[in-house]
Design a protein around this nucleic acid. Structure first.
Length: 966
RNA sequence: GCCGGCGUGGCGGAACAGGCAGACGCAACGGAUUUAAAAUCCGUUUCUGGGUAACCAGAGUGUGGGUUCGAUUCCCACCGCCGGCACCA
């Protein structure tokens, strides 16, 4: 041997770790702190691993290996999120059972992941499709099914916090005295319930999808069209936990971006519900009096429209109302002469997909119902319309429209010529802008204000901010002059007093649609009796195994394929099994809990182990799971928390999202039909085709990929080297099969080894950044590994032995300092997960030592230990060559004498007027006066100070000198 | 439109707490070694101007302003890119 030969070293150590179970984790190790480091487990797709997977996995692996060497008991497991659509789609296409393809894919993934040398405890591997696993997924479902949410329950949690609101056993649900069907009442309050709801049915996939899985009216997976239709489906009452899902984010160590995404998804808004009575007869006054006595009822009367608004302070500006076309009151209130138009409009919106309905660019549509409602603050009758810009699924499905102060209402009012009334005085800046004048030019705003007040908001724009109320008073109520916050409080109070409204909170979050019409998922552990009532099975009945089916194809109709397993479906003479299955998210909602006790056949996990290992201290994965997986998982965890099954309110304490790895940077130029080049500023993509916009009509251009040496930088952009007037696109794209820029980790490992791949992925840049791949970059770190090898090993020898320059001698002071500095820097960098700079430090170390004729063995050993989390195979091999037996995985992490970090002499920059003019070398502990004197005496500085007055001297010992002169 | 993040050499990036901008790597160029090449080793490499030269002068962290003795770092405005949400009342 031997030059550095990764292909020889790596399998050797992987086998060693496997055979010695080097990374098997023990529970409850006394005298050691614990850490639970988790990767988002992969969906084992048929395509195999891509380079994005090892990025996060390498980061956690480095962290874990480092922590083990620091004496920490580390839990670091891996498993498979293996239920789900792609396996089933593939199975349908090839007529293979999904179990077979899934097993095959798992085997490929395991092989690929093992080839990267990660330190997982493989004894804890989990597979969501294993009945020994999904048995407990079903068990958790039953916990949820047997829970109701009591928002007023006061309790103290296991961490000693006073809490309000708790998921409680369904048996504890109080049944109201006037309830004639206690079972139905219980079923209606469970956290898992069935409901006939309009769902996102995707005919191509043969299943319904959660709102979260539908993007722009198409399925997130595959981009198939989705239609709305009513179906009886399982729902999970995640909305009960909306407030806690927001509040508990505060204590988590997550990026602000992800926290914001979660907050926005839950979408909390504070406002008020207000009741408007439909004007039908002269009974309005009676109703008002009655309401003053009864106060605000839970549900409105049959002829009352309840709205939700975040701006009750603008109630005086409500000049019309809008109901969602699906609103149940529409039929009742529509007058005969408007019935036809209303019916027609409702039919046309029902046909529209969500995509069409939410297309923002389009002009607003709607029709008048002929009905009027009474504005409760001033008794004015206002027309009631229906329009599809009001959504049935949010709030009450009805709004009061305040066109002067809401963009949507404004656009609608303009379109249908409805009155606009200003009830807020806009800011001066807004008024000036409206009048076309610049602020600060001394224009008197008083006339503008007066005009706005009188014209009652009939300007070209609505004013949608907070400010002070105007035109808002009656004989017994006035908001005029009140600032928005005050006005809201005041009107809400008045409404409550009158029994007309109350303060409420609305969430964008909807209940989670939890059933799928597919084969490859967890069966529900419930049966349905002849009265269509659901009964949860007993834990002893679990698992409910998936029945064997010859034909698991979806029918294209909403009847699930499990219906074909006739024997399985028949539970008893009077009960049948549920034939829907759970969505893919189910298994990933709790896998982090199963890892702590993966082989337990008695329970999902041992509570003592849960107390020991939870929470997950570090969770790394892609940002694509920022909302769905993390929200669902947190929700399940909270239900389990309320049941005392877990002892932390949150599952994942620290979350890091690795950035995406893009393909290699590409230079793209465009050519017209006649072969002439078209500069990028003239090219725009229309329907996915790049066209030259200068010609009319625009003509398509041809895409030409250029080589790096065909382009050069000019100004801010790249241009063709032969024709610098032609700009070229220079950017890295997302890796995709169609683009042909996918990097296969197997290929990289075969050529450069796993250590080089690991090191490169960490060296590319910060973990969280999006960054382009570069094969040259891989070569760079590969060369570094080769240099590290040659620093220790005599590479021209026939046998493996130390380079003769590696000697058992004391390091020189300089060498000792470099070792100390490297240990200090690498330790800090790993702790802060700045792996790229840690690697730079290791490179500097090697660059320095390869130039030295004597390399103290102790320094080499320290280096090998520092390198080992990053390039474990190489490090183990070098450790052995340095004369150590066994693995270095638990060798103590190198320490250093802090005194070695301090230099006796330092270079101090000397500036004049903030500009660097010289550097002086002074003792590190020199005081201000001596430093100033030394700076003044410097041969470069002295002449520059000649004849000048020093106005100020900034002297920071050990850091800098700055003379301000005149 | 709203929310979040980011703009530093030819490229990926570094500068942790306002104090020497460009660490480390890639690419490029020059040299050594070699019959030659690969590999390896040494050196140069922000830009502009000047000098045979070690060097000198000026500019420079998206743009414009501000705070400060001093700003890549803090503040304001703008431009661009990326990610998320989007008629949520």
């Amino acid at each position: 041997m031997p030059p550095y030969h990764a292909q020889k070293i790596e399998p050797k150590w992987q086998r060693y770790w496997d055979e010695h179970k080097t990374f098997a984790t023990k529970d409850f190790v006394p005298g050691k702190p614990k850490i639970y480091v988790l990767d988002m487990f992969p969906y084992p797709s048929g395509a195999g691993l891509h380079v994005g997977h090892p990025e996060g996995y390498t980061a956690t692996d480095i962290f874990c290996r480092f922590k083990r060497m620091r004496g920490v008991n580390v839990l670091h497991p891996m498993g498979w999120d293996a239920f789900g659509l792609p396996a089933e789609q593939y199975a349908v296409q090839t007529n293979t059972h999904p179990r077979i393809t899934t097993q095959r894919n798992i085997d490929t993934f395991r092989r690929q992941i093992k080839a990267l040398g990660f330190s997982y405890d493989w004894d804890r591997e989990v597979d969501t499709t294993d009945p020994g696993y999904y048995r407990w997924t079903q068990w958790i479902f039953l916990q949820i099914f047997n829970t109701w949410y009591d928002p007023d329950f006061e309790w103290t949690d296991s961490q000693g916090n006073a809490r309000m609101g708790k998921g409680r056993p369904i048996a504890e649900l109080p049944i109201p005295a006037d309830c004639d069907d206690a079972n139905a009442y219980r079923d209606s309050r469970r956290l898992a319930y069935r409901a006939e709801v309009p769902v996102n049915w995707c005919p191509a996939l043969g299943t319904v999808l959660a709102n979260e899985e539908v993007q722009d009216g198409k399925s997130e997976r595959g981009g198939h069209p989705v239609v709305r239709m009513p179906l009886k489906q399982w729902m999970l009452r995640i909305t009960a936990y909306a407030e806690r899902l927001i509040d508990d984010l505060d204590g988590l160590d997550w990026s602000p971006a992800i926290k914001d995404m979660q907050r926005n998804w839950v979408g909390r808004s504070e406002g008020a519900e207000v009741d408007f009575k439909v004007k039908q007869s002269g009974k309005y006054d009676n109703w008002r009096i009655q309401r003053q006595a009864t106060k605000f009822p839970t549900g409105p009367e049959a002829d009352v429209i309840r709205v939700f608004t975040t701006r009750p302070d603008t109630l005086f500006g409500a000049t019309y109302m809008v109901l969602a076309p699906e609103h149940s009151l529409v039929d009742q209130i529509t007058t005969p002469d408007h019935r036809e138009a209303v019916t027609q409009y409702r039919e046309s919106t029902a046909r529209k997909s969500d995509m069409d309905r939410t297309d923002l660019g389009k002009t607003k549509t709607g029709v008048f119902t002929g009905a009027y409602a009474v504005n409760p603050v001033n008794g004015e009758p206002i027309p009631v319309w229906i329009a599809d810009y009001v959504l049935m699924g949010y709030g009450t499905g009805a709004i009061m429209a305040v066109p002067a102060h809401d963009e949507r209402d404004f656009a609608f009012a303009k379109a249908f010529d409805l009155p606009i009334r200003a009830v807020l005085m806009p800011s001066d800046a807004w008024l000036l802008k409206q009048s076309g004048q610049k602020p600060g030019t001394g224009v008197d705003v008083a006339p503008l204000r007066e005009a706005y007040r009188k014209n009652t908001g009939d300007s070209s724009q609505p004013f949608c901010d907070e400010s002070s109320a105007i035109n808002s008073h009656t004989h017994d109520l006035s908001l005029d002059g009140k600032l928005t916050q005050q006005a809201k409080e005041s009107i809400t109070h008045w409404l409550a007093e009158q029994g007309l409204g109350r303060k409420t909170i609305q969430y964008k979050l909807r209940d989670w649609l939890f059933s799928r019409q597919r084969y490859w998922g967890e069966p529900f552990p419930v049966v349905i009796d002849e009265q269509d009532r659901v009964h949860g099975l007993l834990p002893s009945d679990l698992p409910v195994l998936l029945p064997e089916l010859d034909d698991f194809k979806p029918s294209g109709k909403p009847e699930p394929p499990l219906g074909k397993a006739v024997e399985w479906v028949r539970y008893s003479d009077t009960a049948r099994r549920e034939t829907n299955t759970m969505p893919q998210w189910a298994g990933s909602c709790w896998y982090y809990l199963r890892y702590i006790d993966p082989k337990n056949t008695e329970r999902a996990w041992d509570p003592e182990k849960e107390k020991y290992w939870l929470p997950v201290d570090l969770y790394i994965g892609g940002a694509e799971h920022a909302v769905l997986h993390l929200l669902y998982s947190r929700f399940w965890h909270k239900v389990l928390f309320d049941h005392g099954q877990v002892h932390t309110a949150e599952p994942f304490q620290k979350l890091v999202n690795q950035g995406m790895i893009l393909g290699e940077t590409e230079y793209t130029a465009y050519r017209a039909g006649d072969g002439t080049w078209v500069s990028t500023e003239h090219v725009r993509e229309v329907d996915g085709v790049p066209v030259d916009v200068r010609s009319k009509p625009p003509t398509p251009t041809q895409v030409v990929k250029l080589d790096e040496d065909e382009v050069t930088k000019k100004g801010d952009s790249f241009v063709r080297i032969d024709e610098p007037g032609i700009r070229v696109d220079a950017r890295a794209h997302k890796m995709s099969k169609s683009r042909g820029n996918v990097i296969n980790p197997d290929v990289v490992i075969a050529e450069y080894g796993a250590d080089a791949l690991r090191l490169y992925e960490m060296f590319m840049g910060p973990l969280e950044a999006t960054k382009p791949w570069s094969m040259k970059g891989v070569e760079g770190v590969y060369r570094f590994l080769g240099r590290a090898w040659r620093m220790v090993v005599e590479f021209e020898a026939e046998t493996l032995n130390l380079d003769p320059r590696v000697q058992d001698v004391e390091p020189t002071t300089e060498q000792a300092q470099l070792v100390a500095r490297t240990v200090a820097a690498v330790t800090d960098d790993i702790e802060a997960m700045r792996f790229n700079t840690a690697i730079s430090r290791l490179m500097e170390f090697v660059n320095s030592f390869t130039g030295q004729p004597v390399r103290p063995k102790s320094a080499m050993e320290a280096f090998v230990l520092l390198l080992s989390p990053f390039a474990p195979h190489l490090a183990e091999e070098l450790w052995q060559i340095l004369g150590h037996a066994g693995t270095l995985a638990y060798a103590p992490w190198p320490t250093f004498d802090p005194a070695l970090l301090i230099d006796s002499e330092v270079d101090v920059p000397v500036q004049i007027g903030g500009k660097l003019k010289s550097r002086i070398r002074v003792p590190a502990d020199v005081d201000s006066a001596a430093l100033e004197a030394a700076a003044k005496a410097d041969p470069k500085i002295a002449p520059l100070l000649e004849g000048k007055t020093i106005v100020k001297a900034v002297i920071i010992p050990g850091k800098l000198v700055n003379f301000v002169v005149k």
